[in-house]
């Protein structure tokens, strides 16, 4: 895994994605630091940083002696956060590339409609 950003952020985002797509439901046990380290072949300290970030953000919480669990309401919270960054992350680059190709927002809307019909 590598897109230049700190590894622990990428780890945290992967866990978040599992919460969002439902493969990691609320109030179930999340992967442990060592499981994440072994799976992604990264240093356990890095995996621990990722977990800590999720705890600070309120996505995971610790049950003493058992492990990390997905917090109630974590999915809604994450959806809200991802929707907020959707524009910056996807719409802005989309408009930028469209502009390069001489398409304006109207052309894009038509294209999006056409593609939505197909899928």
């Amino acid at each position: 895994m590598d897109d230049g950003r700190p590894l622990f952020l990428q780890i945290a985002e992967q866990v978040e994605s599992s919460v969002i797509d439902g493969s990691l439901p609320e109030e179930t046990r999340a992967p442990s630091t060592n499981e994440l380290a072994a799976f992604h072949r990264i240093n356990p300290a890095t995996a621990a940083n990722g977990i800590n970030k999720l705890v600070t953000d309120g996505v995971l919480y610790k049950r003493r002696g058992i492990g990390m669990f997905v917090a109630s309401g974590a999915r809604d919270q994450l959806l809200e956060r991802r929707r907020q960054t959707f524009g910056e992350k996807f719409i802005a680059p989309l408009l930028g590339e469209a502009h390069k190709l001489g398409m304006d927002a109207e052309d894009l809307k038509k294209m999006i409609d056409a593609w939505s019909d197909e899928t």
Binding site: T33, N34, A37, A38, R41, I42, N43, P44
Partner: peptide
């Protein structure tokens, strides 16, 4: 080797 090292280091 890397996998074994990581797993054993974690433990």
């Amino acid at each position: 080797f890397y996998d074994l090292l990581l797993a054993d280091y974690a433990e």
